Amino acid sequence: MGEPQSGPLLTTPLHALHGELGAKMVPFAGYDMPVQYPTGVLTEHNWTRTHAGLFDVSHMGQCFLIPADGRFETAAAALEKLVPADVLALKPGQQRYSQFTNAEGGILDDLMVTRLGHPGHEHWIYLVVNAACKDADYAHLKAHLPEGVTLKIADDLALIAVQGPEAVAAVAALAPDLANLKFMTSVDLPIDGIWAHVSRTGYTGEDGVEISVKSADAVALTKKLLADARVKPIGLGARDSLRLEAGLCLYGHDIDTTTSPVEAGLTWSIQKRRRAEGGFLGAARIQKELADGAPRLRIGILPDGRAPAREGTPVKSADGQPIGTVTSGGFGPTINGPLAMGYVNRRFAEPGTPVLLEVRGKDLPAKIVTMPFAPHRYFRG
């Protein structure tokens, strides 16, 4: 989960605390991040699936779009030129997943879009973008936002995710009003006296929350949360295996500037009005693929044996013809076996289709399956 790095690494407000907790640190998206703690990735993964895992995601980019005229519609219309989601339909406190698309219909980044629900800020749009893409995303926004909509980059905020079946109960012990918050909605409230913006979302497939908090308060809040026996710190290693089992894309691997949202199986994130009207960058390609189908599709793959197929593994048809590539792969602790996702020619994307994975020069049998590999457990009320 580490990567080659040039230049000094950035740190999050929780960096020293990771050291105190015994984390093994690695370079990730320009930051020095915890890949695992002393108990190891497997234990952390299983703990999150059964109890509650706490993740430092402060490396992510947080920003706001603020309309000068105080009208939410002004900010929403500006953002809708850059993403295919129906932003105008968002109610105060509601959240959507979307993508920044380019003129060719490829994905520049995926992101979370929230209309703030706090009185006096209901016209603000809050965005959370990927760490490795955030500088490019901010430049993209600045280049395309009209006069009258300001980009406010929130470098003074940290972001903490608490995920798992006991996550919300643990956080609600410090903020009882959170207990009934529904999936993909958010609220501003104090957590044991510390101001926070909390959304019921995450990237593990489990129920849980993401908590935006002032950087100066991040350590204090994290320690309060970790004082609950149900909550343990979790690193990037388990975050990756959890999201892979949940069938969720990792930017730069499963989606990138060559991939359209239709190919990636993200059509659910493009609401009906936007499919019909378009009006966003790359709409021509995306609308054509919605109508006619994409030439390739993102699929789940289950190898027959125990050998994992890593990113870049060639995928072949049953008779040995190249049909695609693995984009994420590894071992799934929940399913107790190897799993992968990738792209194949549309003709081979049907679940149940037998395929071959070329691992270390050998063709190993596998089959196309429906994702997620582990069931989603979001709280929809």
Rank of each mutant, 00 (worst) to 15 (best):
G2E: 02
T12R: 01
H15G: 02
A16P: 05
G19H: 10
V26I: 14
A29R: 03
P34W: 00
G40S: 05
H45T: 01
T48V: 11
G53Y: 05
L54K: 03
Q62C: 12
R71A: 13
F72T: 11
A75N: 14
L82T: 07
A85Q: 12
A89W: 02
K91A: 15
P92E: 04
F100V: 02
N102C: 02
I107T: 02
G117E: 08
H118G: 04
C133D: 11
A143I: 00
H144Q: 05
E147C: 06
T150A: 15
A161W: 00
D177H: 10
N180T: 14
T185I: 04
A196P: 05
Y203R: 05
E210M: 10
K214N: 15
L221C: 10
K224V: 05
D228G: 08
K232V: 07
G235Y: 00
I255K: 07
T257F: 04
T259A: 02
I270G: 10
R273V: 14
A276N: 13
G279C: 08
A294Q: 11
R296Y: 07
L297F: 07
R298T: 09
D304A: 15
A307V: 10
A307W: 01
P308S: 06
V315S: 08
K316P: 12
D319S: 13
Q321H: 10
T327I: 09
S328E: 05
G337K: 09
A340S: 15
N345Y: 09
L364M: 12
F373Y: 12
Y378C: 06
F379Q: 09
